[in-house]
Design a protein around this nucleic acid. Sequence first.
DNA 1: TCTGGGGTCCTAGGACCC
DNA 2: TCTGGGGTCCTAGGACCC
Length: 506
Amino acid sequence: MEGSSVAGSERPRPGPEAAPAAVPGILHLDMDAFFAAVEQAAKPSLRGKPVVVGGLGPRGVVATASYEARRFGVHSAMAMAQARRLCPNAAFLSGRFHAYRQVSEVVMRTLRELSPLVEPVSLDEAFVDLRAGVHGAALAEAAERGERAVVAMVEALAEDLRADIRARTGLTASVGVAGTKLLAKLASERAKPDGLVVFPPGRDREVLAPLPVRALWGVGPATAEHLRRAGLKTVGDVAEQPEGVLVRLLGQAHGHGLHALARGEDARQVVAERDAKSISVEDTFDTDLVDRQRLRAELERLARRCVARLREAGRSGRTIVVKVRRHDFATLTRSDTLPAPTDDVRVVTEVARRLLEAVDTSGGVRLLGVGISGLADFTQEDLFVALGGPEDGAAPAADGTGGWAGEPGTAGARADVDGAGGDGAVGGVGPVGASPATGAAVAPWRPGQDVHHPEYGPGWVQGSGVGRVTVRFERPDSPPGRVRTFAVDDPDLTPADPLPLVPPAG
DNA sequence: TCTGGGGTCCTAGGACCC
DNA sequence: TCTGGGGTCCTAGGACCC
């Protein structure tokens, strides 16, 4: 096996034999069971135990399950209720996005040491274009010496990266490297957990052919079903189809795109920064909302949250979108486009209210959302300044708490409990509901939440109910800690910031 | 045992203008 | 006057991704 297929520099010749990238220059990194892994690193008593992170309300779904929990069949996007049945002894935690973001920043920073061309896909995932980085030239040189040389070099580089991430975060990452984004992502998937896979360029079709169509980026349940009905089950099946067949089956863009992807042709570049095109917030309620008054109140809260995020980002937008999911899960949107962008809560709220009025909500509303798109790069303040006008006195500074799971406004008891071992766990129900209508929320302690106690130090909420909250006192670098129970309103118990998983160096 | 939240991109149809 | 076509903007919905 000579480097014959590797050597050819790319030619602008189209057709089935498009030149493969000579260098496996795209790296995809994916943190293993990220949210759950952060929790296990932060909470020594959970290591080696099943951990499930996600929404804990009656309509919650799993965001991430630790590998221990996956063995019971728990996986992301599963209804939380089902996860509890499958794995009742798991620790069920609501997300601590603050902590995840902190760890994510360390990971992304580490990637940027390899190359400035880093494209974060989510908190736990990113592409890196190695050719644009410090090793770019050496990589090209190695490629000229042949496939073995580049692969060896890429492997060394990627293992160093994984070791760095482990040292800095205490967490494991899986890495895939290949000539295209598609193959790099498939490689990292194959590497899971805690592994590395390099697909040398030129082998793309070979790697792809046996995979199920679902492996292709952009093929979900609907497309897979379309393809299946046409008798196409594997990527190889799709690759053999003439483009016209796929276009007729799936439409212009999708058909064309899939035709290329199935053949390993993926020209998507790694893009370091892209501006957001829309900002939205939404809440699913524990029970369907019927009361118009209540719906309006929730809508206004959402509008404030949405605008707060818009302003945080220093943007404004022209199109206001209201999203309604009805009791039967039917989802509809109503939008209105203003003549000019705004970041004024009053405007957004007013438009949203009008849009909601036009929707029949009599059957009950499961979810309500407010979004803004058609984003522009200036804020109302800029406009005032530009016009020499007064300071914007109206800025309603909607509090940008920005969290996820918390939504203290939604109805119902947010009870939750259970630690992994079940030893000190308090079975519990219904802490203090919030009073959403009045907005006077008594923040219930959320499972997983960081707390501090003057005597016992840092700890985390294991569960709460019947006026009590159980806390396990431990920290990332301590042995598993002990559980103590307090009254929910114990003044000594205060919310705390997440501790770093790895003590800061130096 | 019903199905989160935050995004992106595409399609189709209608309005409107040239 | 009639007919046709293209381009752009907007709305609504759907598929998909993490």
